[in-house]
Amino acid sequence: MAVLSRRVLLVSRDEELDSLLAGRRIAAHLAELAQYEGEGGPGDGGPPPDVALVCDDEAATRRLLGLGVPLVRLSSGHRAAIGPVAEGALHRVHRPGWLPGPWPATPGGARTTGLLAPARTARGRRRSGSLLLISFWDVPAGEADAFVSGPLRQLAAEAVRRTQRCEVVCDTRVESVRDTLQALEGVRVRRAADTDIDALHAGTELLLATPTLGAVALAQARGAPLVFLPPLGDGQRDLADRVTQVVPVPVATDPRDPALWAAGQAGAPDPWSALDPAADDLRGAQRVARTLRQLSLAPL
């Protein structure tokens, strides 16, 4: 008798870097389940999925619960746990154990995941270039415009001068960023939803990123250098302040500062050595995936 594969629906926000990366990293541990993506319901007119992972989308959470689908609702950003989650969903909050509080109260039943690390933590032996990973999610339009028209071009040009090439990946405003950087040789601009960011990072020397948990997880899991781009919006500033209380992550306020680019050179200090290895668990993605497998077999 044939055994039917269990089906998991994956829902995340393509326009939010943290949401996108969280969903992908958990999905990497669900290879035995038939995966498909959507916006809150089966896309083929067939039966509902056996289980769903919904990253941040409360409307999709409510629609799926209305169909009787067991699900995990993941809050992917460090400030995303504020506010209620539809009753009946298992609520998980992406938060490394070492990240300093205080934190707002989370809804009843919410659990923190630890760090959602990439499935593959190895880096390429022949790394080159820089990766600029930019999130404009929840950033005021004026701040985003000022960054794109001002510091971004200088940062990309300096990255090419220092590391020979520069990959720029952003969740939104892709065309605006591309128009700004199109005259620079050695620069390529990509949309986050169309890019395997974790794999791209494995082949680059230096990660310069807006302060997001997805970027922090990527660098910490690989013991790789990280430079924060100037924080945009209150959420990014808050995360940058919390991280730099514990880990000496430099901030690229002056792209010409040689200390920023020294972080990617051989023999540079490992900023993550400041953390107590026991203070954080990098297996957050595996734990959420395990919960999804259990739900698919024995819904609550």
Rank of each mutant, 00 (worst) to 15 (best):
R6T: 12
V8H: 06
S12D: 15
R13N: 05
L17C: 03
H29N: 13
L33R: 06
A34F: 09
Y36M: 07
G38P: 02
V54S: 08
A59K: 10
L65Q: 06
G66D: 03
G66F: 00
L67E: 15
P70F: 12
L74F: 08
H78W: 14
R79G: 02
G88Q: 05
G88K: 03
A89T: 04
A89H: 01
H91G: 00
P96S: 01
G97A: 01
W98A: 06
G101L: 02
P104A: 15
A110Q: 10
R125Y: 03
R126V: 11
L131Y: 12
D138N: 10
D138R: 14
V139I: 03
A141E: 15
G142L: 13
D145Q: 13
G150D: 07
P151I: 01
Q154G: 13
A157P: 03
V160W: 11
C166R: 06
T172G: 00
L181S: 11
L181H: 12
E185D: 15
V187G: 09
V189F: 10
V189I: 12
V189Q: 02
R191G: 12
I197G: 11
H201Q: 13
L206S: 00
L213Y: 02
G214L: 00
L218G: 01
A221M: 08
G235A: 14
R237S: 04
V243C: 09
T244D: 01
Q245L: 14
Q245W: 04
P248F: 00
V251R: 09
R256Y: 10
P258Q: 03
A259R: 15
L260C: 12
Q265H: 10
Q265F: 02
A268S: 14
D276F: 10
P277K: 01
R283I: 04
R283Y: 02
A285N: 07
Q286M: 11
R293T: 14
S296Q: 00
A298W: 11
